[in-house]
Write a protein that binds this DNA or RNA. Structure first.
Length: 310
DNA sequence: AACGCGGGGAG
DNA sequence: CTCCCAGCGTT
């Protein structure tokens, strides 16, 4: 959960998740829908699918006991070098470096590591520094301290006056702390437009459909979409076999992903009871918005559904 | 080496 | 608005 996500954001999700699925066995046995429902709103949903796969792998390959070697831990789905190092150093005291956003910032400033942050040369240099700086003793305390330093003092507006590393920090000695690490080059995000169809039946249930297993919002439940060039009612008849009437056009909103903008216009539509064939192999369902989540729902979709609650 | 992958909080 | 967060997997 903490990959690319702030601690304060994670805490309530973590509490809820651990209450519902308190063990590796429970997670492995849970449905992907339940796991995604618990993850809904956190983003980067492949983490949730990988976490469940990791639990299954531990059950199958490690007899349900969490592995304790680096090679076995880093082989778990969704666990890379830094996460494996964090798990084994913090939980078991093993000597492994970590390199998250906090450590990257501290090391970049301390040792004047230039270059684009994502470039492999920069990465290699930072990992080498992380390895060389990691002590033989008290590794858990060291790694935790590096992350806390990056989070509390060595952030966007650094508090060098209180930092214990200033005697060693080259950026501070040269007065160039603000220049490190080098910022990512800003990218121009493309935008995509769509209608989101809020189709309700005579009982007020909303039609949801499952998104493909890969890509944005993979495996989550979402609303039917059609392009602005298509006629929504015609589209519903052709694609869903539903006779509909258009009730209202809601204001356009923008949802920004890490790599594009989604400009969506929600349409309130009512399905006429005549045609009800739109349940394709469990990939579509009529959802009562007053009931608990049936699976993962992305935040913008959840907000729209919440607007339908009675 | 570059890209895909969410959502939100802080400034 | 912009920036970036306890990064990883795929191509």
């Amino acid at each position: 959960m903490l990959q690319q996500t702030r601690v304060e954001t994670v805490i309530p999700y973590f509490e809820r998740f651990m209450s519902a699925l308190p063990s590796i066995a429970a997670l492995a046995a849970a449905s992907e829908d339940q796991v995604l429902a618990l993850w809904s709103g956190l983003g980067y949903y492949s983490r949730a699918r990988n976490l469940k796969r990791a639990a299954e792998q531990i059950e199958r390959q490690h007899q349900g006991r969490f592995p304790e070697s680096f090679a076995q831990v880093v082989a778990l789905p969704g666990v890379g070098r830094s996460t494996a190092g964090a798990i084994l150093s913090l939980a078991l005291g093993q000597r492994h470096p970590i390199l998250d956003g906090n450590v990257r910032r501290v090391l970049s400033r301390c040792f004047l590591v230039a270059g684009p942050p994502q470039a492999s040369a920069t990465q290699r240099q930072l990992w080498q520094l992380a390895e060389r700086c990691t002590p033989q003793q008290r590794v858990a305390a060291y790694n935790q301290a590096m992350m806390d330093l990056g989070a509390l003092l060595c952030g966007r507006r650094p508090g060098c006056g209180q930092c214990p590393l200033t005697p060693h920090c080259q950026a501070w000695q040269q007065g160039v702390v603000g220049d490190y690490p080098q910022p990512r080059r800003p990218r121009q995000l493309p935008s995509r437009q769509t209608y989101l169809l809020l189709i309700t039946d005579s009982e007020g249930a909303v039609l949801l459909e499952r998104r493909p297993p890969s890509g944005v919002w993979g495996g989550l439940w979402s609303l039917p979409e059609c392009t602005l060039q298509q006629d929504p009612q015609h589209w519903c008849r052709e694609q869903l076999g539903l006779d509909t009437e258009l009730l209202a056009t809601l204001p356009q909103s923008r949802h920004t992903f890490s790599h594009y903008h989604l400009d969506y216009t929600p349409l309130r539509m009512r399905a006429h009871p005549a045609g009800q064939r739109c349940m394709d192999a469990g990939e579509r369902l009529w959802y009562n918005v007053n009931e608990p989540l049936v699976g993962g729902i992305a935040s913008p979709i959840a907000r729209l559904l919440a607007g339908l609650k009675t």
